[in-house]
Computed example of a mutant assay.
Amino acid sequence: MFPLSRSHLQRIFDKLDKNGDGKVSIDELMWLLQRIGNDTCREDELELLLGKTSLDFIDFLFFYDAIINIDENRCEDDQVSLIENDLYKAFAVFDSNGDGLISSEELQNALSRFGLWDDHCSSLDRKSKSIINMYDTNSDGFLDFEEFKNMMLFAKS
C-alpha cells in the first residue's frame, strides 16, 4: 500500500462523512476498513482503540498513518518469514544427515552436487573446514541454522 496525499485523504474523509458534520463515525471507519480488506477488528474494539466514537480530519490522518504503518510492518514481517523459510529449505539440502548441523563433509558434498566445487581439488577438505570455521561462532566445527543463515545472508550482500 502506498501513502496517499493529504488532498486524497481529504476527499476520502469527505465521502465518509455522510452527514457533513466534519467527523467520521466508527461505523463509517468500519465500512472503510472492510472495503480495504482489513476486517479483523470489531466496532467495539475500534472504539476502545481510538478512545472516541468519531474522528475529525486530523484524527483521521493519524488513523490513516497507523494503518499504513501496520501494513508496512506486516509486509516486512512477511518478507522476513519468506526468507527464513527459504533458508530452512536450503539448510536441509546441506544438512544431508538431518542432525541439525552442517559438517565440512556435508558442505563439500552439497557444493559438489551444485557444481560449485571441483571434486578433484586436493585442498577440498581444508577449504570446506575454512568456510565452516569462518562462520562457526560457537567453535564446535559445524554450522547450525543460525550460523548458516548468517553465512548465507553475508554471502548475498
Rank of each mutant, 00 (worst) to 15 (best):
D39N: 15
L29G: 06
I102E: 05
I83H: 01
E72S: 12
L101Y: 08
L50K: 01
F91R: 03
E76K: 05
S128T: 15
E105T: 07
F57N: 05
N85K: 07
R113F: 04
L50V: 10
I83V: 11
N38T: 07
N38G: 02
S104R: 02
I83G: 10
L33K: 05
Q108L: 09
E47A: 15
L55K: 06
F91H: 03
L46E: 04
D44K: 06
T40H: 09
D119A: 12
D39P: 14
D71I: 11
L48S: 12
I36K: 10
D59Y: 03
I70E: 08
C121N: 14
S96I: 12
K52T: 12
L33M: 14
F62C: 10
L55F: 08
I36E: 11
D65H: 01
L124D: 15
F62P: 01
F57D: 10
R113G: 05
L61R: 01
W31G: 11
S128N: 07
D86E: 11
G98V: 13
S122M: 12
W117L: 11
L55P: 11
N85D: 04
N73L: 09
K127A: 13
I70T: 03
K127S: 06
I102Y: 01
N109A: 08
F57V: 05
H120S: 09
L29R: 01
M30Q: 07
N97K: 04
R126M: 11
N85G: 12
D59P: 07
L107Q: 06
S104T: 12
N109E: 10
Y88P: 02
L49R: 09
N109W: 00
